[in-house]
Amino acid sequence: MKELRFYVRSLRLHLLGGVEYKGWWIMVLQVLVVAVTDPIGTVLMFARFGSVGSWSVERILLIYALAVTSYGLAESLFRGFDYFPSKMVRSGDFDRLLLRPRTLFTQAAVSYFHIHRLARPAAGLAVVFWCLARQNTAPSPRSLWLLVSALLGGTLVYAGVFVFMSGISFFTVGILDWMIIFTNASYQVTRIPLPYMPGALRSVFTFVMPMLVISYYPASVLCGWGEPLWKGLLALPAGAAFLGLSLLVWRVGVRHYKSTGS
């Protein structure tokens, strides 16, 4: 409870600090434009080439938007871990967290927060609803639960990626560019219709980092493309398991921490 209050209060402080900048709303606009323009390549390709088999632009966008919304939520609520390798480990600022009487996890998660990051999940969610409406999916308690569990699971998965990245940054100190493959590049993979996806990509994003488990499978069950219900409900357990494993890496990392910087 104490941790939660600490988390909320820190968020509030970051929020108030952020809106002191005169141009803060431009940042919101900017992230919104990024979120909207990011799939523009895919949309234009569909406009030029038409559907791929039964895969229409709405299908691809739904899967894409589920992944993006989860990513955006994780990025907003666990921003500190996203910044952790560059801002905490490299500079040695992590020393200060170790001295404070709160858990490291909460402190690290909330060490940064940017209001404009919320623009991405907002845009993503709007696209999800638009696609669901276009696919004639009737709102029901079942579909609501599927949607919520997909997004919750997805947020946990992406939070797990950030935590994992922070954990190994204790050893590598920076040089984590390639992790982008599990953050921003991971939802680009959803642009490829699943039956045509190279097997290696499909396995990596199902079994190593369960990105398809939180996007494709729930979407498929929601709109009735033929996947069984249990696969659609795997999102939440998969997300929890992935975050759990990442936390182990993080703990090993913390134990090996030697201060850097000056």
Partner: peptide, 23 residues
């Protein structure tokens, strides 16, 4: 390495369009 992986994903996506799309 990052650029490389990114490009491979992009190429996989484009290939699907060029090979299987109807338009």
């Amino acid at each position: 390495l990052t650029s490389f992986l990114w490009a491979v994903i992009e190429i996989a996506a484009f290939t699907v369009f060029f090979k299987y799309a109807r338009g």
